[in-house]
């Protein structure tokens, strides 16, 4: 069955026709062409697809598009403002928190949810929080460093 869904994605009202079984990530990638949200597994574990729905980080591969009806969705494409990277994005760049870049959008979106709850996390808290995000390239060392730096920058209001 097909239905119309409408939601607000990165501050823009969007709608589209989807099958009931369409995942939110499929709607974002295929209907909206927001291909920054990635799919790295089919068991809801890798976290490459993490986006924010109504302010909470969720796996867009584990939510139906119809479940996000009326929701506020933020994807990686919605972070940089006026061409300026978000402090968390900038921290990843400065600290070499990414290599192939595939897990990166999910890492950044997940990190922002952590910092929202815990503005000054410890290194151990960051590592624990990243339970739902896999990376094969970085060994996580620089991801953790990036998130700590990003959190610090966000506390500083920069």
């Amino acid at each position: 069955m097909s239905v119309n869904v409408s939601m607000n994605v990165n501050g823009r009202a969007v709608c589209g026709e989807v099958e009931d079984r369409t995942l939110l990530v499929e709607f974002l990638r295929e209907n909206l062409r927001l291909t920054g949200t990635h799919v790295g597994c089919d068991t809801s574990q890798c976290g490459a697809c993490v986006v924010h729905v109504d302010g909470r980080s969720v796996k867009a591969c584990t939510m139906l598009a119809v479940q996000a009806e009326g929701a506020e969705v933020t994807t990686i494409e919605g972070l940089a403002q006026d061409g300026k990277l978000h402090p968390m994005q900038e921290a990843f760049r400065e600290n070499h928190g990414l290599q192939c870049g595939f897990c990166t959008p999910g890492m950044v979106m997940s990190a922002l949810d952590l910092v929202e709850r815990n503005p000054d996390p410890s290194s151990a808290e960051v590592r624990e929080w990243l339970e739902g995000n896999l990376c094969r390239c970085t060994g996580y060392h620089n991801i953790v460093k990036s998130i700590l730096a990003g959190a610090s920058a966000m506390r500083g209001g920069s």
Binding site: T62, W129, G132
Partner: peptide, 9 residues
């Protein structure tokens, strides 16, 4: 339980 995103849903 699970991971933060699972706990959020």
């Amino acid at each position: 339980i699970g991971d933060p995103q699972v706990r959020n849903c």
